[in-house]
Design a protein around this nucleic acid. Sequence first.
DNA 1: CCTACCGATCGGTAGG
DNA 2: CCTACCGATCGGTAGG
Lengths: 232, 232
Amino acid sequence: MEIAAKRLKALADSGKGEQLSENQQKLLDRNLLTHDLQLKGTVAGNSEGGRRSILPNTAAELFAEKGFDRTSMRDIASRAGLLPGSVYHYFASKTELFLTIHQDGFNTVRAQVKAAAEEGTDPWDSLVRALSVHIGGMVGDSPPIQRLTGHSLAMTDHPELRDQIQPYREAYENIIRQLIDDLPLRQDSDRTLLRLTLLRASNWVFIWYRAGGMTPQEIAWGMVEMLRNGVA
Amino acid sequence: MEIAAKRLKALADSGKGEQLSENQQKLLDRNLLTHDLQLKGTVAGNSEGGRRSILPNTAAELFAEKGFDRTSMRDIASRAGLLPGSVYHYFASKTELFLTIHQDGFNTVRAQVKAAAEEGTDPWDSLVRALSVHIGGMVGDSPPIQRLTGHSLAMTDHPELRDQIQPYREAYENIIRQLIDDLPLRQDSDRTLLRLTLLRASNWVFIWYRAGGMTPQEIAWGMVEMLRNGVA
DNA sequence: CCTACCGATCGGTAGG
DNA sequence: CCTACCGATCGGTAGG
């Protein structure tokens, strides 16, 4: 936790620097310095949290590149500009870091998908809009946290990890599940099989997606159209 | 390699046992004994190779249960009834063991899928028959090697491993790819998107498949039917 | 010299 | 946040 650092910074900002001990001032200076160094080269200037908010992004990048098991805490620390043991100052374990990322990521995309669906003019349109956002979030230059979250939907091995993100995942997928349940189908259609096919096929798009090819919107529309009207 | 053992066994089988030296006979007996012990409790009586042919099955089980990284050579050795170091007598590395399994597995299912497709009465029927075998091979009580091979089609992380099985995988998936290319479609259909959707959805079935639910045949037919004629 | 292993240990790295 | 480490386990290899 960074309570101490925040308290120090609040004191400094309020112009009461003269109340700080020499040791406190030294800690503060170092924190602000490394803080600025950290933000160099990153996209946004999220001015609060410092490394606490940078570590999940860094970790998400690496988890998405190499997988959970082959990413070491040393890898994460190194890319974040920290020494190996220091990551544990912010996160109690590698698993906690992973879960924090997914809680955040699933909440974010869930809100985005929900909002997109509500703009639809009919059930089919809503589904296409939702899937466009769903697919768009896991490819291209989406934020690392959302990309990793999307990729984790396709995680097949590592049951322990799967089970732990399951609650967040389920809350998210229920949004899309509901949209499929709302579709007007022929009576002999298997709604369950439709859901499994469409959702799993969507979750896999990031594997074959290439920038410059079909856009997430085109992919979403194409898949829904195929399943709606058939190809024969 | 077991060339010496095979040579001895060939001599023994040909009824020329009296030509064997005492030492040779002792080696042969020991080989046959441990061989029989190994085969106890396993399905088939593949009578050559001994542990060399049992290790891939054992390893495939573990790789399918826990994933490549979380399966140690000690785990594999332990389940096969060997001491940790002894696996290296048969396979130079964990990776070589993994690749051997996949070469064998993909060759086997490729032949099965091809044979099934050739019994079809029309392109759609051939595709359903092929996918039935494809899905059936990765679920239920299929041999561990085939099950792992099927699961590996859904591997998303661990790029190094993916790249190394890619040639076998491609040869296999090309069979199904060709069946999809042979389908008579409406002219405005996107054959590539159909292939990606259908193949990826199939490769995912083992995740939600449950014994006692839909059979592989019903799943294959259901998915193809949906994409052929639509659900609306 | 070979085979089919064994008991013990190697250099490194994991999460903490 | 760093320095200095730990208990354990990893894939792989030594001599016999």
